[in-house]
């Protein structure tokens, strides 16, 4: 799957990711003589050479730009740099040393050792498969409908979720949403109330791209199909007592519930 970011310094690179969870300073964070990360980086002993180095953003002294040049001199440059938010010190060093660099990437989707290609403004994650789904929260008088997934479904058996389903090729997410509401609940009065930006969640080799929707529904009964065994109308605060699918809370958050 391809993740689109922003090009900071052009170039192509292929390599395995080295993912640091915290802000990183090249000065003091890596030994330019060996390319090995120091204890200050939180990942002592890993070598940056030929890795696609991933971290949220740079920090520390401006001398860090020159540390990247030192890595170049000693032949230990990373293959590329990927940030959430680029800043001056690392970007300057990347341009000086000619290291491809992109930012605006959601690095929570990336794992150490993933194979990837940096090209232009994007990161091509060679081994990851994207699964696009809609999640539709149905609301009535302040309560929302949750459904218990049956044993016949492919994923998250027995867990509680909102109406959801895969977005088929060529389908627009809102079409999928309306179709799934009818299939899974039989309701026909759903009115689109809100939607939120796509959420992405890493799960093994899969990345779930979740398109969240909020619908208001009228006073009609839910008629379940084979995908669910139970349903309940709950207040968002009552969710604690239910075993919900991964990322469900996040979906409610982005929908403002």
């Amino acid at each position: 799957m391809k993740l689109k970011g922003r090009e900071i310094f052009k170039g192509r690179a292929i390599g395995r990711l080295l993912v640091l969870d915290e802000a990183f300073s090249f000065l003091g964070g890596v030994d330019p003589k060996t390319g090995l990360l120091t204890v200050a980086s939180g990942r002592e002993g890993e070598n940056v050479e030929n890795r696609i180095l991933v971290f949220p953003y740079g920090k520390g002294s401006t001398v860090g730009s020159y540390t990247i040049m030192d890595l170049k001199k000693n032949g230990h440059l990373p293959a590329a740099i990927v940030n959430v938010q680029a800043e001056t010190i690392v970007a300057t060093g990347a341009v000086m040393a000619g290291v491809p660099m992109i930012d605006s990437i959601d690095i929570s989707l990336l794992r150490d050792g993933d194979r990837a290609v940096v090209i232009g403004d994007g990161l091509d994650m060679m081994d990851l498969v994207e699964k696009r789904v809609v999640t539709c929260v149905l609301r009535r008088k302040g309560k929302m409908l949750i459904l218990k997934r049956s044993q016949k479904v492919g994923t998250n058996k027995g867990k509680w979720a909102a109406v959801s389903g895969f977005i088929e090729r060529g389908e627009r997410p809102e079409e999928t949403a309306l179709k799934e509401i009818v299939e899974e609940t039989g309701m026909t009065t759903a009115r689109l109330e809100g939607r939120a930006e796509t959420l992405r969640i890493r799960d093994g080799i899969y990345v779930w791209s979740i398109y969240p929707f909020l619908f208001e529904v009228g006073d009609e009964e839910a008629r379940l199909d084979w995908e669910h065994t139970e349903c309940a109308w709950v207040d968002p605060a009552e969710l604690e007592g239910y075993d919900t699918v991964p990322g469900f809370r996040k979906v409610l958050d982005v929908l403002g519930l």
Partner: peptide, 30 residues
Amino acid sequence: ALGAIYGADRLIPITSAHLSGVSYKTIGEG
């Protein structure tokens, strides 16, 4: 690259520059 990071719309002409990165102690062989 810097323009992209900070959302600059264009480049503007300058009348002077002052440079750091002079001491061998800080910039080294790189």
